[in-house]
Amino acid sequence: MRWLRRHYGAHPIHLLLMLACFSVAGYALTRIHAQGGISRIVLWFAAVLILHDLIGWPLYTWADRTLLRLSSRPRPDRPASVPWINHVRVPVFLSGVLLLISFPLVLRLSAADYASLSGTSESGYFGHWLLVTGLFFAISAAVYALRLLKIRLRPHPSEPSPKLLGRPTAGS
């Protein structure tokens, strides 16, 4: 047992779990093979894994880093400001997920099949998605404007506004 632990690198039960997991997966592959279409299915399985891990993730990370660089650029002309990055991140994420779950409809990739099966048209979806996306950005912008307004209206603690300086204030 100690031998196994040293050479295998984990508890023997770990090995048993792995073997069980691969057996079930292997059995599933034999079932897919019996039913047909195994090469396409394995190809798609690998393709979506690569699509997420090696294309999707690097792309959205790169986009986020770019956004971060833009948002952290110092703006000496505007001293009082509110970080805006999340007001872009959030609507982009929400809108992106919606596109992800409905892209065949939004981009009309299945227009012919959809029309003949449902008796209606896919043509409305692109507009729906744009409408919702626009709404997300509008709400985000409104919240940002409110936050900005709040900070502009509040006098800066370290440099009180000159108007207030002359007035006698209690306790000062």
Binding site: G37, R40, W44, F103, D113
Partner: peptide
């Protein structure tokens, strides 16, 4: 979403 051009049966996959 009725996109069916992936080349295998949905049920199988």
């Amino acid at each position: 979403d009725y996109y069916q051009k992936y080349g295998f049966s949905f049920y199988t996959g």
